[in-house]
Computed example of a mutant assay.
Amino acid sequence: MSKREEIIQLADSLIKQKGYNAFSFYEISDKVGIKTASIHYHFPTKSDLGVAVIELYIANLNGLNESLRRKSPIEKLDKFFSIYSNIQKEKKVCLIGSLATDFNTLDCKVQDKLKEFTALMLDWVSGFLVDGRNENFFVFEGEPRNKALVIISNMLAIVQLTRLTNDNNFEVVKTAIKNDLLRK
Protein backbone atom coordinates (compact mmCIF):
# COMPACT_ATOMS: atom_id res chain seq x y z
CA MET A 1 0.00 0.00 0.00
CA SER A 2 1.36 3.42 -0.94
CA LYS A 3 1.63 6.24 1.62
CA ARG A 4 -1.20 8.05 -0.19
CA GLU A 5 -3.45 5.00 0.17
CA GLU A 6 -2.38 4.57 3.79
CA ILE A 7 -3.30 8.19 4.51
CA ILE A 8 -6.72 7.76 2.88
CA GLN A 9 -7.39 4.54 4.83
CA LEU A 10 -6.41 6.13 8.12
CA ALA A 11 -8.49 9.25 7.41
CA ASP A 12 -11.45 7.01 6.61
CA SER A 13 -11.02 5.14 9.87
CA LEU A 14 -10.74 8.36 11.88
CA ILE A 15 -13.82 9.88 10.20
CA LYS A 16 -15.89 6.79 11.03
CA GLN A 17 -14.47 6.56 14.54
CA LYS A 18 -14.62 10.16 15.70
CA GLY A 19 -15.80 12.45 12.90
CA TYR A 20 -14.29 14.62 10.20
CA ASN A 21 -13.72 17.67 12.38
CA ALA A 22 -12.13 15.66 15.19
CA PHE A 23 -8.98 14.50 13.38
CA SER A 24 -5.98 16.41 12.12
CA PHE A 25 -3.10 15.97 9.70
CA TYR A 26 -0.83 15.85 12.74
CA GLU A 27 -2.70 12.81 14.08
CA ILE A 28 -2.37 11.09 10.71
CA SER A 29 1.31 11.97 10.42
CA ASP A 30 1.95 10.56 13.87
CA LYS A 31 0.19 7.27 13.11
CA VAL A 32 1.63 6.87 9.59
CA GLY A 33 5.10 7.94 10.67
CA ILE A 34 5.58 10.83 8.25
CA LYS A 35 5.73 14.60 8.53
CA THR A 36 2.58 16.65 8.01
CA ALA A 37 4.30 18.25 5.01
CA SER A 38 4.30 14.83 3.37
CA ILE A 39 0.55 14.60 3.85
CA HIS A 40 0.17 18.07 2.33
CA TYR A 41 2.18 16.84 -0.66
CA HIS A 42 -0.57 14.31 -1.41
CA PHE A 43 -3.48 16.36 -0.07
CA PRO A 44 -2.88 20.13 0.02
CA THR A 45 -5.97 20.62 2.23
CA LYS A 46 -8.07 18.53 4.55
CA SER A 47 -10.90 18.97 2.04
CA ASP A 48 -8.76 17.31 -0.64
CA LEU A 49 -8.26 14.37 1.72
CA GLY A 50 -11.98 14.25 2.51
CA VAL A 51 -12.82 14.17 -1.19
CA ALA A 52 -10.27 11.37 -1.74
CA VAL A 53 -11.88 9.28 1.02
CA ILE A 54 -15.34 9.70 -0.52
CA GLU A 55 -13.98 8.96 -4.01
CA LEU A 56 -12.67 5.66 -2.65
CA TYR A 57 -16.19 4.82 -1.45
CA ILE A 58 -17.65 5.77 -4.82
CA ALA A 59 -15.17 3.51 -6.61
CA ASN A 60 -15.85 0.67 -4.16
CA LEU A 61 -19.62 0.99 -4.52
CA ASN A 62 -19.35 1.08 -8.32
CA GLY A 63 -17.18 -2.04 -8.20
CA LEU A 64 -19.58 -3.75 -5.80
CA ASN A 65 -22.55 -2.87 -7.97
CA GLU A 66 -20.80 -4.34 -11.00
CA SER A 67 -19.80 -7.52 -9.16
CA LEU A 68 -23.40 -8.03 -8.03
CA ARG A 69 -24.97 -7.25 -11.40
CA ARG A 70 -26.13 -10.84 -11.96
CA LYS A 71 -27.08 -11.53 -8.32
CA SER A 72 -30.63 -11.65 -7.02
CA PRO A 73 -32.20 -8.66 -5.25
CA ILE A 74 -32.09 -10.64 -1.98
CA GLU A 75 -28.34 -11.20 -2.39
CA LYS A 76 -27.91 -7.47 -3.05
CA LEU A 77 -29.92 -6.64 0.07
CA ASP A 78 -27.80 -9.05 2.10
CA LYS A 79 -24.63 -7.42 0.75
CA PHE A 80 -26.01 -4.00 1.70
CA PHE A 81 -26.64 -5.31 5.22
CA SER A 82 -23.14 -6.81 5.38
CA ILE A 83 -21.63 -3.37 4.77
CA TYR A 84 -23.39 -2.04 7.87
CA SER A 85 -22.73 -5.22 9.84
CA ASN A 86 -19.01 -4.72 9.32
CA ILE A 87 -19.22 -1.09 10.40
CA GLN A 88 -21.21 -2.06 13.49
CA LYS A 89 -18.73 -4.79 14.43
CA GLU A 90 -15.92 -2.22 14.23
CA LYS A 91 -17.88 0.01 16.65
CA LYS A 92 -17.75 2.85 14.13
CA VAL A 93 -20.36 4.72 12.10
CA CYS A 94 -20.76 4.77 8.34
CA LEU A 95 -19.13 7.45 6.25
CA ILE A 96 -22.44 9.01 5.23
CA GLY A 97 -23.66 9.16 8.82
CA SER A 98 -20.42 10.62 10.10
CA LEU A 99 -20.03 13.26 7.39
CA ALA A 100 -23.73 14.16 7.43
CA THR A 101 -23.29 15.14 11.08
CA ASP A 102 -20.50 17.55 10.11
CA PHE A 103 -22.13 18.59 6.81
CA ASN A 104 -22.61 22.30 7.58
CA THR A 105 -18.94 22.68 8.50
CA LEU A 106 -17.56 20.86 5.44
CA ASP A 107 -15.98 22.57 2.47
CA CYS A 108 -18.24 22.72 -0.61
CA LYS A 109 -16.01 20.20 -2.43
CA VAL A 110 -16.54 17.64 0.33
CA GLN A 111 -20.27 18.42 0.55
CA ASP A 112 -20.70 17.92 -3.20
CA LYS A 113 -18.76 14.65 -3.21
CA LEU A 114 -20.76 13.40 -0.21
CA LYS A 115 -24.01 14.24 -2.02
CA GLU A 116 -22.71 12.33 -5.06
CA PHE A 117 -21.89 9.25 -2.98
CA THR A 118 -25.20 9.42 -1.12
CA ALA A 119 -27.12 9.64 -4.40
CA LEU A 120 -25.18 6.65 -5.72
CA MET A 121 -26.00 4.61 -2.60
CA LEU A 122 -29.65 5.65 -2.81
CA ASP A 123 -29.79 4.71 -6.52
CA TRP A 124 -28.21 1.32 -5.80
CA VAL A 125 -30.65 0.45 -3.03
CA SER A 126 -33.61 1.81 -5.01
CA GLY A 127 -32.50 -0.25 -8.00
CA PHE A 128 -32.43 -3.57 -6.23
CA LEU A 129 -35.73 -2.76 -4.52
CA VAL A 130 -37.32 -2.16 -7.96
CA ASP A 131 -35.86 -5.42 -9.24
CA GLY A 132 -37.00 -7.26 -6.10
CA ARG A 133 -40.54 -5.99 -6.44
CA ASN A 134 -40.65 -6.71 -10.19
CA GLU A 135 -39.38 -10.26 -9.59
CA ASN A 136 -41.83 -10.80 -6.69
CA PHE A 137 -39.11 -11.11 -4.06
CA PHE A 138 -40.06 -7.91 -2.22
CA VAL A 139 -43.41 -6.45 -1.27
CA PHE A 140 -43.66 -2.80 -0.27
CA GLU A 141 -45.94 0.16 -0.83
CA GLY A 142 -44.98 3.39 -2.50
CA GLU A 143 -41.97 4.55 -4.41
CA PRO A 144 -38.79 2.46 -4.28
CA ARG A 145 -36.71 5.58 -3.60
CA ASN A 146 -38.79 6.35 -0.53
CA LYS A 147 -38.40 2.77 0.72
CA ALA A 148 -34.66 3.03 0.08
CA LEU A 149 -34.53 6.21 2.16
CA VAL A 150 -36.28 4.43 5.05
CA ILE A 151 -33.94 1.43 4.85
CA ILE A 152 -30.75 3.48 4.62
CA SER A 153 -31.91 5.82 7.41
CA ASN A 154 -32.66 2.88 9.67
CA MET A 155 -29.23 1.35 9.07
CA LEU A 156 -27.45 4.68 9.60
CA ALA A 157 -29.32 5.19 12.85
CA ILE A 158 -29.03 1.68 14.29
CA VAL A 159 -25.27 1.60 13.76
CA GLN A 160 -25.01 4.72 15.89
CA LEU A 161 -27.65 3.67 18.41
CA THR A 162 -25.98 0.31 19.13
CA ARG A 163 -22.97 2.28 20.33
CA LEU A 164 -25.23 3.33 23.20
CA THR A 165 -27.39 0.28 23.71
CA ASN A 166 -24.61 -2.30 23.31
CA ASP A 167 -27.04 -5.11 22.58
CA ASN A 168 -28.59 -7.02 19.71
CA ASN A 169 -30.62 -4.08 18.38
CA PHE A 170 -28.65 -4.04 15.14
CA GLU A 171 -29.77 -7.58 14.26
CA VAL A 172 -33.34 -6.77 15.36
CA VAL A 173 -33.58 -3.81 12.97
CA LYS A 174 -31.86 -5.62 10.11
CA THR A 175 -34.19 -8.62 10.49
CA ALA A 176 -37.26 -6.36 10.73
CA ILE A 177 -36.33 -4.60 7.49
CA LYS A 178 -35.77 -7.87 5.65
CA ASN A 179 -38.92 -9.51 7.02
CA ASP A 180 -40.94 -6.43 6.08
CA LEU A 181 -39.66 -6.61 2.50
CA LEU A 182 -40.25 -10.37 2.31
CA ARG A 183 -43.53 -10.10 4.27
CA LYS A 184 -42.54 -12.83 6.72
Score class of each variant (00 low, 15 high):
L64W: 11
C94L: 12
S24M: 06
I7K: 02
T162Y: 15
A100E: 08
L14W: 13
R145I: 10
F128S: 08
A37D: 13
N179Q: 11
S38L: 15
Y41M: 12
Q111Y: 14
L120P: 09
L10D: 06
I96C: 13
F103S: 04
N134L: 13
Y84Q: 01
S47Q: 02
I15E: 00
D167F: 09
I83Y: 02
K71P: 14
A176S: 11
K115G: 06
F80S: 02
D30V: 08
K184E: 06
I152P: 06
R133D: 14
K109E: 01
S72P: 03
D48N: 05
G97W: 10
G63P: 01
L120W: 04
N60T: 04
T36R: 07
D48M: 00
V139S: 05
F103T: 02
K91L: 12
T101S: 11
F117W: 07
D180R: 15
E6K: 04
R133C: 05
F170P: 10
K79E: 15
P73I: 09
S24K: 12
G97F: 11
I54E: 00
E27Q: 04
R145P: 03
E5N: 08
I54Q: 00
S38D: 09
Q88H: 11
S153E: 06
V93K: 12
W124P: 14
L64T: 08
E5F: 00
S85I: 05
D167A: 08
G132L: 02
L68Q: 04
L106K: 08
L156F: 13
T118K: 07
R145T: 09
N21E: 11
V93W: 14
Q160C: 03
A37M: 06
N86F: 12
P73M: 07
F43W: 10
R183M: 11
L77D: 01
